[in-house]
């Protein structure tokens, strides 16, 4: 005779609320892993595709310009270009990760799954931001590895490479969160990408040394935060910077802090997230 399951005494105590301290580490970790698994599942689109696109960009610029521009910033044009392209693909992917995650969840209505769990605004900000950073850095790393095979980059100052890679990914992750929280439909986010992010990235000295710009434009370039991330990152590789390195570190740190405060506030108030 099998034991009577209906009358058997329960082995486990009844469920209770999980206890945690000041930080819900388990929850934060779960949110972070959700963000990572989300892009890892479609790695062809999220990691491999940016890699191919960036290598094509490199090929085109070298084919189109390599002949006539032999030196820029004291190195060959290819060495000058490679760090800029790596940075560009990193920030695009960091932005894409957080913005698509939040906006899709908003449009489909499953954002409640993120808002209901016992996660504080700070934990929400950190979880999403770290997820976007992970994708940015991963794409950057693969692109760097591929370019090393082609161009043979060497690293001049590892600190600047790491700092600017992390700070730029974080900055764009947070901008992505900001854009997606603000946006109501996909058109809005596309507008942010087309009219804010792409121009800032293109006109930042990724493809040319800002020393070449005529006076008025050079001033404009120096108030673009994207200029500092690319300039500092490139300094880490080639040992030549167009702008001030200290200013770059300060701008990146301050911009990240300011955005963190803003995004934290948006999560805390529930702006365009909670009814």
């Amino acid at each position: 005779m099998p034991p009577n399951l209906m009358t058997a005494t329960p082995i486990q105590p009844p469920p209770q609320v999980r206890q945690f301290g000041r930080v819900n580490w388990q929850g934060l970790k779960t949110l972070y892993l959700k963000e990572v698994r989300r892009f890892a599942k479609v790695a062809t689109q999220t990691v491999l595709a940016p890699l191919v696109t960036t290598l094509l960009f490199l090929a085109i610029f070298v084919l189109a310009l390599g002949r006539s521009v032999d030196k820029m910033g004291g190195v060959t044009f290819m060495e000058f270009l490679a760090p800029g392209l790596i940075m560009m693909t990193m920030v695009q992917n960091a932005f894409a990760n957080t913005s698509s995650s939040i906006l899709i969840a908003k449009v489909q209505g499953n954002i409640v799954d993120v808002l209901m769990p016992p996660l504080s605004p700070g934990e929400l900000t950190a979880g999403f931001a770290l997820g976007g950073m992970t994708r940015g850095l991963l794409v950057g790393l693969t692109t760097w590895a591929a370019m090393t095979l082609v161009v043979g980059t060497h690293i001049h100052a590892p600190f600047f490479v790491l700092f600017h890679a992390a700070a730029a990914s974080l900055l764009l992750s947070q901008l992505g969160m900001l854009g997606a929280i603000w946006a109501v439909k996909f058109d809005h986010l596309a507008a942010v990408t087309n009219f804010v992010i792409t121009p800032l990235a293109f006109l930042s000295g990724t493809f040319y040394s800002v020393e070449r710009l005529p006076g008025y434009w050079a001033v404009l370039a120096h108030i673009n935060p994207f200029f500092y991330m690319i300039d500092g990152f490139r300094y880490g590789f080639i040992g030549h910077a167009d702008g001030s390195l200290a200013a770059g570190l300060a701008v990146m740190a301050l911009a990240n802090l300011a955005l963190w405060a803003l995004v934290h506030r948006l999560f805390a108030t529930g702006y365009r997230l909670k009814a």
Binding site: L65, V69, D187, F195, P199, Y208, R212, L213
Partner: peptide
Amino acid sequence: RYSLLGPLVSNMLFLAVFHIALGDRA
């Protein structure tokens, strides 16, 4: 906005970038 202005902006940026980086030199 997305389908016409988007390509418009990105192509003009392309033109600007190539122009700044190379100009008509050489």
